[in-house]
Design a protein around this nucleic acid. Sequence first.
DNA 1: AAAAAAC
Length: 471
Amino acid sequence: MTDTAASGPSSFADFGLHPDILKAVVATGYTIPTPIQAQAIPVVTSGRDVMGAAQTGTGKTAAFTLPILHRLMPLANNSASPARHPVRALILTPTRELADQVADNVKRYSQFTPLRAAVVFGGVDIGPQKEEVRRGCEVLIATPGRLLDHVEQKTINLGQVGMLVLDEADRMLDMGFLPDLERIIRLLPQQRQTLLFSATFSNEIRKLARSYLTQPVEIEVAARNATADTVSQIAYKLSGDAKRAAVVHLVKSRGLKQVIVFSNTKIGTARLARQLERDGVRAESIHGDKTQADRMKALEAFKAGELEVLVATDVAARGLDVAGVPCVINYDLPYNAEDYVHRIGRTGRAGATGEAIALFAPEEERFLLDVEKLIKREIPRGQLDLPASLLASSRGERERPVRSHGARGERGERGERHRYELPAKPVDDFFFRPYVPATGAEPARTEAPPVPPRTSAKRPLAVLLGGGKKD
DNA sequence: AAAAAAC
């Protein structure tokens, strides 16, 4: 812990930032730096490495973007030659949306300078990115995979990068980006400033920091894993069936706009959005199986206030910054308690008040208890009175029971609903072959071993052959 | 267990 928090500058003008950058800050309407900005800006400006733990929505992006631009100003020139604009600062993010958003910020803060910024990420045509990069950029924002693609195609050279930012580093590790990160870092000069931001300081993160940071200044603004005080939290216990009705009721009865509803699965996300639309709620879904164009379209519509609800997987749990999201609903409780913190961090941002509502089925209560343990506070349980009309339609439309395979005994007494049940996907006919006991008398079968359900197709061969380790 | 990310 550092104890410099209280004594930070009380105005952006106190940082000594280059006037052209300060001008953009003023134009954006910022006056008082947030705690992370107050702490990080002087340290980054001084050239030191930083290991920062900050709640999302605390102004983290500006906290590293502003001093980076400031430090690049002596290198800025108005030349039209791409050769005069090599990449000097590289910002890596785990998701495409976050990269895009950080790029928007960098472009805004550099609008009055000759500095140029570009962004590259996957899922979209690489051609325009090549063109943008070819024109030259001092600041490059990227997701790791597409960046390596560019490097291999020699459209991007990282040999002049003097500043590296790893944003949402814990998420990048979770997503298996470590090998990509290592490859990218090997392409950078040894002599550089490195900033690592992470929601948590896990052992893996500390190890990463030991490998790539030099005597970093540790900055931590909020107690780790704490939730913002400005977010009120409540949890409603509901059967799985009633959840959808609850979302409709909450949105309609209170006239909510711009609600993010989190679901655990891509399929569940898409299905819920469709059902909400049928119930007269303007809703779109965003998840990783959608094309990048659709993801952007949904996000834009949401930002523009055209949607009442954005139904999202955890693709949207971290980093997304939509001004003024008043309410986040956890339609499913996340398997990892930490994801709860990230999800509800979408509301109550930058000091605004927000509300986080959790809808949990009885069998999900243990996840709620995990969350309470992590955030070290109790989430009050509420009672939600749903109109009968909503509940009825919720039942009628149900094509198959949700979680009917749950191990709970009381499911039996509602057996009538099982008649609606149809498997979502065709089941491999292996499961329907008669069971043959493996007696000695049995003729030797030379049949290939059954292929497990298709999800295993991506597993290493060794696992398929039974040689893989299972832990 | 699920999600994300290069083609």
